[in-house]
Amino acid sequence: MPCRSEADASGGRPLRDLLMPSIQRGSILIALLAICLILSLMTPNFLTVANLINVARQISLNGILAVGVTFVLLTGGVDLSLGSLVALTGVVAATFAHPGDYPVVVPIAMGILAGTACGFVNGTVVTWGKVAPFIATLGMMTIARGLALLVSGGRPVSNMSPELTRLGGELAGLPIPVLILLVVTLAAGFFLANTRMGRHVYAVGGNERAARSAGISVPRVKLFVYTLCGALAGLAGVVLAARITTGQPNAGLGYELDAIAAVVIGGTSLSGGVGGVGGTLLGALLIGVINNGLDLLNVSSYYQQIVKGMIIVGAVWLDQKTKA
């Protein structure tokens, strides 16, 4: 006789599962709170509204990218092209954003569209061309960087309309990039938990062959995640251009690795099938808080890099230990 708990009988999904249906969520949250506690004891400047908003602003770009990467990693893939896509899409958006040229939706749409197109190409090469994701997106990383330089002529694209640069500002005291990150994370979490495609993303990453024999079109799922990841990179590119009021062809160096780090710290498995965007948000926050804390404590940025690297390895190591 199978025993059933109340939660099972109700059939509804508790709200906490919306963002990350996984056990490790708890341990990251505890780590994050512990670090916050230590920092607030060590420096009075940490636990202030202004500083916390500052942290949120600092992680917003990485967070948006990391949400996209979460989808890709959940299917067992990887996307290395994001940093270059941020540069390309920022340049594209800035090009369409000179004052008086077009309404503000045009540069935003063009930026996101450029990212979507590149993501679609990534997905096509991976599925139809059967090229390993590492290689396919490594190629796109170089191609997109070249395109960004080509479109901008190698120089920053400035003279952007204030309507667009307002996207880098604030709304009701909160930075707009942070609001965008929140909306993106909630939407992605809802999508993964409540749509058929979301379920299929987990199935493909968990066991691709089983997903296929359950009638799931594996190429369609993969094409979808790479395209979505590209679209979110486009969004991040537009937001970055708005914040720094230029389209920088050299922007975004190494962003893809920061995004992957946040996802992995957040408990999403590199081999796919396990994890979620809630953990990713916590992972991005953890990196952001530590960077911020070390800044406040006047630790040199050289050390910050070393610490970040150790956290990435340590988080995954802990994850392995707790699973075994």
């Binding site: 987990y202 199935a203 968990g206 066991n207 062959r209 089983a210 024999s213 099938g273």
Partner: peptide
Amino acid sequence: GWGLVPSM
């Protein structure tokens, strides 16, 4: 190999 998704 072909049947179950073990993580689900």
